[in-house]
């Protein structure tokens, strides 16, 4: 009696262990499949746009990359103007947003009284929460008229400086590369700021206190201690902002002016990869549509590389921290 009961118990527990092991395998497999979907999404986005743009990418090859023509009537497409617009607006955004972000991060970590830091940094992060279409609307209805008001003054002052003067000469349309760049700068400001603020906070207090003990000023602590310590992550944060700016659509579409040209003046209207796609895709057929998808492929590849570099640089600091 005793023996059979024990045998029964042993058999039961063996069967349960067996079942549990099988459930564990299935469970693990399902979870892994879901994780691999993340990989599939990125790969799929790249491959599907490559496939959709094959007609232009492989059919025209280098011509597509080097030509500035964009003629749906003759089906002649070149990516140079949209690429130019994307790069120029993103560069303007970075040039404007980086110093301001640095200033805000400095304020939030070194200058502001402690009670002020939480609310102010929440407020700056709120900027990141505003949908990009709102930036676009605000840009078109409010910021464009504002810019067309101050552009004559820009032309009269900055426009007179030799060499860079050319950048600021042109009709005061309000629309254009400079306006789009500024709107983008406001959009990416919170992203760069939050990375900078976070990495500034990782600097060991004893390093900063040592510097203060040697009678450094706050600026010297920031510039000579905090910044060198966090350099790679700060650059990573800046490149992350660049990645955002390159791919942004809605904030720039309204204010760029949607015209295919490459000019030396930042006050002239232009176009960007994302705004070309947004503006034309639903009316495009055949080769035109293929050209737009090919543009999407280019954008994806470029932002992927940029974001990869950014993440690698951010990773470096995390590793040094032993995370």
């Amino acid at each position: 009696m005793q023996v059979t009961l024990t045998r029964q118990l042993v058999r039961d527990s063996e069967r349960r262990a067996h079942l549990d092991a099988r459930y564990d395998r299935i469970f693990r497999g399902v979870l892994k499949f879901c994780a691999l979907l993340v990989l599939a999404a990125l790969l799929g986005a790249a491959l599907s746009t490559l496939w959709g743009g094959r007609e232009v990418l492989f059919g025209q090859g280098l011509h597509f990359l080097t030509s500035d023509a964009w003629n749906p009537v003759k089906d002649d497409y070149g990516a140079l103007s949209p690429i130019f617009g994307t790069l120029v607006t993103s560069l303007i955004a970075i040039v404007l947003a980086v110093p301001v972000s640095f200033g805000v991060a400095m304020f939030l970590t070194e200058i502001a009284p402690t009670w002020m830091r939480g609310p102010v940094s929440s407020a700056i992060e709120l900027l990141a929460g505003i949908p990009s279409i709102i930036y676009g609307m605000w840009g078109l209805f409010v910021f464009v008229p504002f810019m067309s008001g101050i552009e004559p003054a820009l032309s009269a002052t900055l426009g007179r400086i030799p060499l860079i003067g050319k950048l600021f000469q042109g009709p005061p349309l309000g629309l254009g590369l400079l306006t789009a760049g500024i709107v983008l700068a406001v959009m990416i400001l919170p992203f760069i700021t939050s990375v900078m603020r976070e990495v500034f906070q990782t600097v060991p207090t004893r390093l900063k206190e040592s510097a203060y003990a040697l009678s450094s000023t706050r600026w010297e602590v920031l510039w000579d201690i905090v910044l060198p310590y966090t350099r790679s992550a700060v650059i990573g944060g800046i490149i992350l902002g660049l990645g955002r700016a390159l791919g942004e659509t809605m904030a720039v579409t309204f204010v760029l002016g949607n015209s295919y040209n490459i000019t030396s003046s930042l006050l002239m209207p232009g176009t960007s990869i994302s705004s070309s796609i947004a503006n034309e895709f639903n009316e495009a057929v055949g080769v035109h549509r293929s050209a737009l998808i090919a543009l999407g492929f280019l954008l994806f590849v470029v932002t992927f590389i940029v974001l990869l570099i950014a993440r690698l640089m951010l990773h470096q600091l995390a590793r040094r921290e032993g995370k």
Partner: peptide, 27 residues
């Protein structure tokens, strides 16, 4: 593999949304 996926997930986090739209259009 975990590190790679975590890393790529961070990239997907800031990938251009318009390209994701094109992707879904294609598939």
């Amino acid at each position: 593999l975990g590190t790679v996926i975590r890393f790529l997930n961070d990239i997907l986090l800031s990938a251009p949304s318009i390209v994701l739209g094109l992707f879904v259009y294609m598939i």
